[in-house]
């Protein structure tokens, strides 16, 4: 456990600037968005989460000897490295969501929007804070297919295109669910989210297993 904590901390350190940028964007959005922040109607949040996930995966999944490649020479197993990288990206997502939630839950958004003359505040209050859990879920659903891309690209069989194709398909399906989740019945929405979650789980397990077979080139 201690080992995983140290490794995850090491990985999060590599994401410092990406996380700072994402937290700044989340804070700015939480403070300045003048329309109601609702889960399924925020394409900008969805896009922001996708970009943040993409940057994190790009940083940790690089095959360069400096940085990610270095860890593979330090006596850690492939599983330890894989789970620490995944945990680091999830923790980063949690950090960003937490900053977003704090802005709303502490009433900072209310104060700023009221000062800007938004007629919905203070009436809207802090009810929007509930959306945070959906944004966090978005991180959790997006990260596995994105990790899958770099893991697949590093396999000796050199079929990197397959990883991109599968991840793109899953992301398109995620986007479809995200857009239409509130336009269908609750039971259908639950099925859509369930299927998305299942796809994320499958790509997570596949990435973990494939990662054992990846190569580290300089």
């Amino acid at each position: 456990m201690k080992l995983m904590l140290i490794l995850t901390r090491w990985q999060i350190r590599q994401l410092f600037w990406a996380n700072c940028l994402a937290m700044c964007c989340a804070t700015w959005f939480a403070l300045m968005s003048n329309s109601a922040i609702v889960f399924s109607r925020n394409v900008s949040v969805a896009f922001g989460v996708l970009v943040h996930c993409g940057i994190m995966v790009l940083i940790l999944g690089r095959s360069e000897p400096r940085g990610p490649g270095f860890l593979y020479c330090q006596g850690f197993s492939r599983d330890q490295l894989w789970w620490s990288a995944f945990a680091a990206t999830v923790c980063s997502g949690v950090l960003v969501c937490l900053s977003f939630w704090l802005i709303i839950a502490t009433g900072l958004r209310v104060v700023v929007q009221q000062a800007l003359g938004n007629p919905w505040f203070p009436m809207a209050g802090t009810i929007e804070a509930k959306s945070t859990k959906w944004f966090l879920m978005e991180y959790i659903l997006l990260l596995p297919p994105l990790h899958y891309i770099w893991v697949r690209a590093r396999l000796p069989q050199r079929d990197a295109g397959a990883g991109w194709a599968l991840a793109a398909g899953i992301l398109a399906f995620d986007a479809h669910c995200y857009t239409y989740a509130d336009q269908v019945t609750p039971s259908s929405a639950a099925i859509l989210i369930g299927v998305t979650g299942l796809l994320a789980l499958v790509t997570l397990i596949a990435s973990w297993q494939f990662h054992r077979q990846t190569e580290v080139q300089a």
Binding site: G67, Y72, A218
Partner: peptide, 24 residues
């Protein structure tokens, strides 16, 4: 294992590497 070119990121401090040593 020490391979030429395999180095930690530039922002790494020596104490982070000592942590890593303990973690092995």
């Amino acid at each position: 294992c020490l391979l030429d070119g395999f180095e930690p990121p530039k922002a790494t401090q020596i104490r982070h590497l000592l942590d890593l040593g303990r973690a092995t």
